[in-house]
Amino acid sequence: MMIPVEKLEQLSRRYRELDDLMCQPDVLSDRQKLAKLTKERSDIEPVVGQFQRYRDVEKNIRENEEALTDPELRPLAEQELPVLQDERSALERTIKLLLLPQDPNDKKNTIVEIRSGEGGEEAALFAADLFRMFARYAERQGWTLEVMSLSEAAAGGYKECIVLITGKDVYSQLRFEGGVHRVQRVPATETQGRIHTSTATVAVLPEADDVDVQIDEKDLEISIAASGGPGGQGVNTTNSAVQILHKPTGMIVKCQDERSQLKNKAKALKVLKSRLLDIEREKQEAAVSAERRGMVGTGERSQKIRTYNYPQNRVTDHRIRLTLNKLDRIIDGDLDELITALRNERQAALLQEASGEPRRVEDRGGDESDER
């Protein structure tokens, strides 16, 4: 699939037009209009820049091809041509990706829900490990993480942990983390050294804006109670825990992390709105109608997207059959290689879909012989 040159030239003309418009006195005096034009310019700037570079490379290729007829210039041209041709191919792919329809949720902040699955106490400990993994990854990215709700297990670890992660392009990075995560390791309580298998589920939801989801107050049943469970004196002794029942869906959200009743209510509403937005997306987009159910499933071991094998220091992502022998670094928040591979796979699939050709996932060294 060749790049659409005519469309790119139109975008380039529009980019120059926006530059001129943004210098007009009537635009400079109108903040709203200026902000709108600035955003439009910012949105098309990456593809216009890449197209300009593409045209420069094309010109250099033509000049080098002409130089092949000159005995003195031929050696240099033969050396430069392969490099330029490779750059042209890379630019074509980049431009095609930039022209793909953007997911409006990609730039949104994200709510991540982590719950222990099969495996009892070990599953709760693993859920806590996943929370720390995402927290450290967020720190590496310069994002901010806020705990919305936390339910600790009696023997340690988390039964449930809900966090809001804010920053640049959070959802576009974390969208691939939704699903059943499986761990294989020897629990601290195991006296005979046997490897146990446990799971935790992760749901990744774009934060809902007020314009995305409207909630009628009469559809809510709000309960206030004293917070329970581990969490310190301030949490346990105040009537600050808020539970919200959304009567039309039967969905229940509870938040007790803050001492303030109002803050807990605000957090619970934020989680509720994001869950309702996800339901709306399922209704509107038939292609992803079961996205969240597929993401979380039932938590059974067979519904895994990724396995963390501690004895072999190995992580396998089963969706793209990628195995990395650096579990210690990944669980410490070094998710870049995994996320990049998943993003590349998704982009390749989108490009194939745009070209109308079938796509086959390649095996990248994932050995599942002992992953079942």
Rank of each mutant, 00 (worst) to 15 (best):
I279D: 05
N64S: 14
A266E: 15
L327R: 03
F126R: 03
A127L: 09
L269H: 06
I95F: 06
D209N: 05
D209L: 06
K218S: 15
N264W: 10
T94M: 12
S302E: 15
T166F: 00
G366H: 04
E121Q: 13
M251E: 15
Q256E: 08
T238M: 09
E190F: 10
D334N: 09
R14S: 01
Q312V: 14
R329P: 00
T237V: 13
A155Y: 07
S240L: 03
I61G: 14
V57I: 15
N239V: 09
K265E: 07
N60M: 14
Q32R: 10
N325A: 12
S223I: 10
I95T: 08
H318Y: 04
G117T: 11
A203C: 05
D212N: 08
K107P: 03
R259I: 03
L81H: 05
G156H: 11
G49M: 09
G232P: 04
Q141R: 14
R182Y: 02
A341S: 14
S240F: 03
I244Q: 04
R13E: 13
D209M: 01
S223M: 11
R292M: 13
G297L: 03
W143Y: 08
R321C: 06
G366S: 04
E58W: 04
T201W: 09
I252R: 14
V47R: 00
I224C: 14
L125M: 10
V235Y: 01
G229H: 01
L91G: 08
I44N: 00
D30G: 08
A90M: 11
E58Q: 13
N109T: 02
I224Y: 14
A35Y: 00
R93Q: 14
A135W: 03
N109F: 03
K304C: 11
L350Q: 15
L8R: 03
T166E: 12
Q184D: 12
M148V: 15
R16H: 14
S260Y: 05
E280G: 05
R346I: 00
G297F: 04
E177H: 00
E300K: 12
V288C: 13
Y15K: 01
L150N: 12
T144D: 13
Q10K: 11
T38E: 03
Q141F: 02
K270E: 07
E72V: 15
A266H: 07
Y310R: 12
G157T: 10
M2V: 10
G333D: 04
E146S: 15
T249L: 09
D317L: 00
R53Y: 02
G229C: 02
M148D: 05
C161I: 15
V27I: 14
Q352E: 11
T340N: 07
E160W: 05
A226Y: 11
Y171C: 03
G356R: 02
D216Q: 09
Q85S: 10
L164D: 12
L18T: 05
Q79F: 12
A290I: 01
Q303T: 07
Q50V: 06
Q184V: 10
N239Y: 12
P311I: 09
R132F: 10
T298V: 04
R306F: 00
A153Q: 07
L262F: 11
I252L: 13
S172Y: 01
K267E: 06
V83R: 14
R175Y: 02
K36D: 13
